[in-house]
Simulated assay, not measured.
Amino acid sequence: MKRIAFYTVLFIQIIVLSLLAIQYNLIDRTDKEVQLLLQDRTFYSESTPIYINYEIEEIPKEKWDIEVDQEDVDSVYVLLEQGENGISNVSKVVLEKPNKDAAQAFLKASFSYENRGMYYVHYESLQRVMDERLIEGIESDKALVATIKIAPWGQSKITSIENIAKE
């Protein structure tokens, strides 16, 4: 009996680990793709991990569509709209999870703090440390844009990083 229980637990672990590996690769098949501007203080070098910050982490007060006290807010949903240059910007921030069938992309974030009319959030699903292969050929004096695929289950993946002219 113990032998059957052991093999059953082992089999379940193999299935779970396989699903986790497949899930990450299934992100490439999703149609929700956004381009996000990276902040100027994004740091990268050849010898250290590449840590990135996104422009959409700073949200103006007028886009904050939440009436409750910020102390009571744990997680919020940031709705993104595509700008004329193809880069996504914050459309508004809400407490309720938007409909998955909505054409508008959204990301789940946690509220960090407020300072001088700006709200700062942290995105759990966005990568902070990226693969060095993504920044080959990138010039540090130009603005950076990350192309990100967002899966229906909330996970995201950086597919490319490119230079654009600073505005």
Rank of each mutant, 00 (worst) to 15 (best):
116 R>F: 08
107 L>T: 03
112 S>A: 05
141 D>A: 11
75 S>V: 10
77 Y>E: 00
75 S>P: 07
108 K>R: 15
103 A>M: 02
116 R>Y: 10
86 G>N: 05
113 Y>V: 03
84 E>R: 13
120 Y>A: 02
115 N>S: 08
129 V>C: 04
137 G>M: 12
95 L>F: 06
94 V>K: 12
111 F>G: 11
128 R>M: 05
114 E>T: 10
143 A>H: 09
133 R>W: 07
87 I>K: 11
115 N>M: 03
134 L>E: 07
124 E>M: 09
82 Q>K: 15
80 L>V: 01
83 G>S: 13
80 L>G: 08
98 P>D: 03
103 A>G: 11
77 Y>K: 10
128 R>K: 14
117 G>V: 09
71 E>F: 05
83 G>T: 04
69 D>G: 08
95 L>Q: 14
106 F>L: 01
113 Y>W: 04
76 V>E: 02
101 D>E: 12
118 M>C: 01
75 S>G: 07
99 N>C: 05
109 A>D: 01
83 G>H: 04
140 S>V: 12
110 S>H: 04
98 P>L: 04
122 H>K: 08
130 M>W: 06
137 G>I: 14
133 R>L: 13
91 S>W: 03
77 Y>W: 13
79 L>R: 13
123 Y>G: 12
124 E>W: 04
130 M>T: 11
119 Y>C: 02
79 L>Q: 11
128 R>V: 00
130 M>R: 08
96 E>N: 14
71 E>P: 00
104 Q>E: 09
138 I>S: 13
136 E>F: 14
84 E>T: 09
137 G>N: 14
140 S>Y: 09
120 Y>C: 01
109 A>C: 04
94 V>I: 15
117 G>K: 10
122 H>W: 01
132 E>C: 06
114 E>L: 02
72 D>H: 09
114 E>W: 02
85 N>W: 02
88 S>C: 10
95 L>V: 09
112 S>T: 02
120 Y>P: 01
101 D>W: 00
73 V>G: 10
124 E>C: 03
99 N>D: 15
136 E>I: 15
140 S>C: 05
89 N>K: 14
127 Q>W: 00
135 I>W: 11
123 Y>A: 11
116 R>I: 02
109 A>Q: 03
132 E>I: 11
121 V>Q: 05
90 V>I: 11
130 M>N: 07
95 L>T: 11
106 F>T: 01
109 A>S: 07
108 K>H: 05
